[in-house]
Amino acid sequence: MLKPTLGAALVATAALAHAANPITSKIFTADPAALVDNGRVYLYVGRDEAPVGGKDYLMNEWRVFSSCDMQHWTAHPDGVPFSTFKWAARDAWASDITKRNGKYYLYVTVEHKTIPGKAIGVAVSDSPTGPFVDARGSALITNDMTHETEISWDDIDPAIFVDDDGQAYLYWGNTVMKYAKLKPNMTELDGPIHTVGLEAFTEASYLHKHAGKYYLSYSRKFPEETVYMTGPTATGPWSYGGVIMEQNTNVKTIHHAIVDFNGKSYIFYHNGKLPTGGEFRRSVAVEELHYGPDGKILPVAQTAEGPAANPSTACKR
């Protein structure tokens, strides 16, 4: 793989003057994943391409944005098409990203060509902005590997978490949450697939750690709200914490990601608030996230303003 310098990549990008929610009004975006690296936050989104009045998701690629201050976002020119995975038939549904050993691993949801149902693939790059290539040449998770439900979309929404001891975990699922350990190569399961019973779990599981505590958040019910649980390890046991974000008004989903950046915490999510926006024409936004003195996540309201500027002096421009 070629390893372009970040400076060269940024020369080829278009800086967005937009400094409010959503993070871009140029295209419709959904299902945010985020990564903080070298003082810059990178945002990975699926591109909604359904026409006005469309009745289904039309998503063919993931797009990458980045920011040094959580207000002004740079659109990187090269997306990641679902065709990166030759075994995929269509769709660029929810993804997640992590860095390990100097490489960037992007876990994605696509439709499999030959095994009916949704599948999870993993791509790798030497740069957070790509180019990404298929790390396996085959799916990591396919619908025939799990049998908890009869639906064909129960293997979606991958979330990747690397614990302090170096153990990587993959979380995913619809209706039933599943998780598995990954081998250090980040492209193979290391042991069995486990299921977790969560109250009214729908999808979009996400794990992060704050002040020594593990936070498992997910989309609950349908239409969805974002809730969280806490636990002493990356696999629980889990105790209910509360609602982070209420349901959207004109979009049934609300997929999220949580990161720490430059001394503050943030939650990304999507809604349908752009003109002509809605169920299949969504927009990713971001808010600052706060914890109470007891470690509880405080409820987050959606705003048009978004978070205050938080410029990072460590950001490599």
Rank of each mutant, 00 (worst) to 15 (best):
K3Q: 14
L6A: 14
L10G: 06
T13I: 01
T13Y: 10
T13L: 02
H18G: 13
P22L: 01
I23N: 09
I23E: 09
S25K: 12
D31Q: 01
D31M: 00
L35E: 10
R40A: 10
Y42K: 06
G54H: 08
K55M: 10
Y57L: 09
E61A: 11
S67G: 06
M70D: 06
M70N: 08
P77W: 02
D78C: 08
F85K: 03
A88P: 12
A92P: 02
T98R: 11
K99E: 13
N101C: 09
T114F: 00
G121T: 02
S125Q: 07
D126R: 09
S127T: 13
S138R: 09
N143M: 04
T146K: 06
P158F: 00
F161M: 04
V162F: 00
M177Q: 15
A180C: 14
L182Y: 01
I193S: 07
I193D: 09
Y206F: 14
A211N: 15
G212I: 02
Y214E: 13
Y218K: 02
G242C: 05
T249M: 09
N250Y: 05
V251I: 13
T253C: 07
T253S: 15
F261T: 13
F261E: 15
F261I: 15
Y266T: 10
I267P: 03
Y269G: 11
H270V: 05
H270F: 10
N271Q: 10
N271A: 12
G278P: 09
G278M: 09
F280H: 08
R282E: 04
V284K: 09
E287S: 05
E288G: 02
G295T: 00
A301T: 11
T303V: 03
A304N: 13
E305I: 07
P311L: 09
A314L: 11
A314E: 12
R317E: 11
